Amino acid sequence: MDCSPGSWLRAPDSVLNVGLTGNIASGKSTVVELFRKWGATVIDADALAREAEAPGGAVLAAIARRFGADVLAQGGSLDRAALRAKVMGDDAALAALNAIVHPAVQQRRLELQRAAAERGDAIVINDIPLLFEVLDPAQFDAVVLIDAPVPLRRTRLRTLRGLSNEEADRMITAQMPAERKRPLSRHVVENDGTLAELEKKAQRVFAALRQQAARAGVRTEAPDQTLVLCALGAKDAAAPVLKAIERRYTDAGMRIEYATVKSLGKILKTITPLSIVATADAEDGARMAWEAAVPPRPCRLYHLSPDPDPIAVRLDLRPWGHDRVALSEEDGAGLAPRADLL
């Protein structure tokens, strides 16, 4: 397998594949946990590396052959401090280590990305400390860099890890300077203030990622077109699933119009929506209005159902803040699944 940076496989197109990185003591881990709390799927490169380096595996055996048996602790696990001492400040040794570990990590990352796509996850955050050092940033749909001034990072290393200034500087200079990473990053989060300030900055970036993820599903459609959500009445229209669909497609640049079974026919006389989504209670009424429109059946009609016919399911949707939703398309039985509502 070609493991050069340019050969890395991309994540499935249905997932917004985000690379998130930051130099040591930048606050990267704090932002990752915020993104996780807000609904992103997180793939932790360090955790994957530890998994790959487990005793008994081919990766650990290759590390021991290259760097010597003294990088193994009693019991056969990796002595990370001993290995760090051998590669710190030695570019050739670090490159050799990366060549051993990163192909296995990348393969496992791709497996997890595919699993996320199959679940209908919208945003995958790849937490990768050495993203620019060992990968091609072009493999990601967006790159987020967390950064902080070097003096502040040095202070954090002294305070939080008990390092001396010399030890802190050695760890800081071992990484590519953030100044080289900033022009290659779509989003830069400046972590030079309080935790509350960091959270506000991270929220703005996450909102932008959510819009990008939503728009990715409808990239072939012009913005400002209409999606109609049809319910039986006011109580049915307040269903959380409709509100979740509204949030997702508003982020995608679509105009959302609510209708009841009684008002749908009138709406279809004035606009031609790209799609209609009807609740289970509104299914029959929505179908009648859709068929009675002029011209009849002017757009796609989907039905929400707690137990949809698996043969007729055309779309598995994961709207914001809601579990995965299966929708049946009118006259869609036996046809290939669609990628999105529109």
Rank of each mutant, 00 (worst) to 15 (best):
T173H: 14
E53G: 01
L94K: 15
D147H: 13
L60H: 03
E330G: 00
D340C: 07
G162E: 07
G285W: 00
A286V: 00
W38Y: 08
A289C: 04
V189Q: 12
R210E: 15
Y302T: 00
R65N: 02
K262S: 15
D147C: 10
E190Q: 13
M88I: 00
R204K: 14
T270K: 14
A278S: 01
G57T: 13
G120A: 06
A148Q: 05
Q113L: 14
S263F: 08
I125M: 05
S4L: 12
R204S: 13
G332A: 01
R84F: 11
G233N: 11
T220R: 09
I172V: 07
R204E: 15
P149V: 08
Q106R: 15
C299Y: 00
I128S: 04
A239G: 06
D91V: 13
V205P: 06
V325Q: 08
G89N: 09
L227N: 03
L317T: 00
L242C: 01
A40E: 04
E179D: 15
G253S: 03
I172Y: 02
E221C: 11
S29A: 05
T279L: 00
I63S: 00
L242E: 03
P5H: 10
A40P: 03
I311K: 10
V150W: 10
L16A: 05
D224N: 11
L229Y: 03
T250M: 11
L274I: 05
